[in-house]
Design a protein around this nucleic acid. Structure first.
Lengths: 131, 131
DNA sequence: TGTTTGTTATATTGATTATATAACAAACAT
DNA sequence: ATGTTTGTTATATAATCAATATAACAAACA
């Protein structure tokens, strides 16, 4: 798993870490049961503070993606353990909406946006038809 | 146009205003050529500071959605005036990716995510087939 | 038994967000 | 022509967030 931090990004570092871990899991780079590097090791790798990585891990735990065992490590939960609640779906939908709306207002067509979605799926190596 | 502010949201107020204006335009509540309320009026309506609304307007101008005429007002640009650049599309795609990835990791299927997209389209009253 | 681990605590720095006032000059309405 | 409204600019303040820096603790691990 390679994580690239953009220091000048408007996205906080801890959020960049969270997202790239999620994408790594979605892509299959990391599988359920795998142990994440210790917060100290990953922090050293990324040249960031320990607490920054720790914040990411806890964010992922709050989302139900990880299980943190105190003084041991962080383990990726299986899909079965992750309960996809309607609240989570609604949250994602809520975050999706302004992006789609912006695209539409800027002049993108429905087709363009759906094509964009398919590109994202392809990038995450999800099995989609018609890519 | 009704704008609802959630003071406890983790989304900044100026960002909430920007998003809801964009959604209003996408939905057709506001049309190109329409003038937005003055920053002072809208701020009074929302019970927020003038500068907060001003920040929203300038964000929308930076995105190419508005034209601010100094000491006169803010006008919604037409789709023809708004140049949809590939950079803008890439930016949206970049923001879309972590949301989709999170959905996938949490156990959502491709179908569920595409259904979610269609719900968003429907909410924005975009003409989509199969909704 | 020593090392590694996550946890907790404290402190500091910088940036962001939001508000509060105030003044200015151009635009607007009557 | 006059008074009001407009966006702009400036300054100041408070609160929150993001990130770093140390340090110490106790459980887990080899």
């Amino acid at each position: 798993m390679i994580i690239q931090i953009e220091p000048q990004s408007d996205v906080p570092i801890y959020e960049q870490v969270s997202r790239q871990i999620i994408e790594g899991i979605a892509r299959g780079d990391m599988k359920p049961g795998d142990t994440l590097p210790s917060v100290r090791n990953l922090a050293a790798d990324l040249c960031v503070n320990m607490h920054t990585v720790n914040k990411s891990y806890h964010e992922l735990e709050a989302k139900g993606i990880l299980t943190i065992r105190a003084k041991s490590g962080a383990i990726i939960r299986s899909v079965e353990e992750r309960a996809l609640t309607s609240e989570q779906l609604q949250q994602i939908e809520k975050n999706l909406k302004p992006l789609v709306a912006e695209g539409m207002v800027l002049g993108a067509s429905v087709d363009q946006i759906e094509l964009m979605m398919k590109k994202v799926f392809a990038d995450l190596q999800m099995p989609v038809e018609g890519v």
